[in-house]
Design a protein around this nucleic acid. Structure first.
Lengths: 212, 212
DNA sequence: CGGGATGTTGAGGCAAGTCAATCTAAGTGG
DNA sequence: CCACTTAGATTGACTTGCCTCAACATCCCG
């Protein structure tokens, strides 16, 4: 009924505006969901990780975003038709999915607010804090987060340029908020300050994400 | 089990971060959903109109956005508990809601893309075109749209200032794309040009919106 | 017919984008 | 194992589009 598949880094799991007759549950790795405008501008609408769901529930299964593996990804693959049949027989799961979809709508609202009225340093601070909580990784001595995506990905997610993202990282370093032993390893030196900058008192607790 | 209520213009149907034990189905009028940051910045995350649904499905029914009537609103009101019971007994409706939630996620993706990488005139053009299709109103001689919300609402929805919105309206007038007999009546003079500017070939067809 | 709220227009500043150069890290092949 | 290559990240100089601030116009509503 389902089987596990390995998608190597940079491989495409689904393409913008094309049919997709599969539903994936991410087991390991990170996926980015993005759309590209005709002139090349790109917006990443979200990231998916272990436990998250990728695929359209709708009958006409056209997918609106491209899903690309940021790291090697292991995903559990279902045929969409089989997945839908299974759904028909278990209203509990159906309800569960609806709850998750509600959570996803809230997450997208957060993203809209981030893009609509926050400044670059607020955006990056919020991003780093969410990354830290969402996919905990092997930690060093203090609190730290592994950032699997490239600066360009962060930029396209936050609605900024790579240069601005890079400068903001440097600013955070100079302010003593973080340390950057490697480009993709953030060590938190002053979490309180980051929460302050991000305009958050606590991080929202949400269920699994649904990517489509 | 349910009853119709009139909410006068500017009245609040739900408040950010407070409990809401009701579920509304909008019968008439327009509602704006927004969040306000501690320092007063506001982002409108969406508008709801006839047929759209307002309220949380989750058990812990905390609402994350404020819902305010842009015009006089007539809404069909359900107790959330009763609504949930009714849902339990009709998996078809449950599935229907899941489809609508998927649509809503796509709409929010569109909004994210608009805020993340589009320029002011592209944002306004897209907004006007969506408004025209979404809630068709009594039309004049040519194609036109009634815009019930104030400039400040449009600005906060598009992530711009009122000044920029106003200037962009003026620009569209001068370019002959639209005419503005009244501030809230847009007559389309060159739809093709607006589609071009908005970067759209066709408008996405979506089901009802779900506001939470 | 006021008067306050809303919308428009103008002038100027600045934050973030653009362009360009440098630095770093990770491969790749001899 | 080390030189070479290349992609990614950082830093700097410059530009500009949108925001800010301010004045004025217009529209409602009492």
């Amino acid at each position: 009924m389902s089987h596990s598949t390995l998608f190597p880094k940079d491989s495409i799991l689904a393409t913008q505006d094309s049919e997709l007759d599969k539903v994936f549950i991410i087991v390991d790795g990170i996926i980015k969901l993005y759309q590209i405008l005709p002139d090349g501008r790109r917006q990443i609408v979200g990231f998916l990780g272990p436990g998250d769901l990728l695929g359209s529930i709708k009958r006409n299964a056209s997918v609106h975003s491209t899903a690309e593996a940021v790291t090697d990804v292991v995903a559990c693959t279902f045929e969409r038709s089989a997945f839908l049949e299974f759904l028909q027989d278990s209203p509990d799961l159906l309800f569960e999915l609806l709850i998750n979809a509600s959570d996803e709508i809230e997450s997208q609202h957060d993203h809209v607010i981030l893009l609509g009225c926050k400044r670059p340093h607020e955006r990056l601070a919020a991003f780093l804090l969410v990354m830290q909580q969402r996919w905990p990784v092997a930690r060093g001595n203090g609190e730290s987060a592994h950032i699997p995506m490239a600066r360009a990905d962060i930029a396209d997610y936050l609605g900024l340029t790579v240069e601005t993202v890079s400068r903001t990282f440097t600013r955070f370093k100079k302010l003593g908020f973080i340390a950057l032993p490697r480009t993709n390893l953030v060590q938190f030196r002053d979490l309180a300050a980051l929460y302050e900058v991000a305009g958050l008192t606590e991080l929202p607790v949400r269920g699994i994400s649904m990517g489509l």
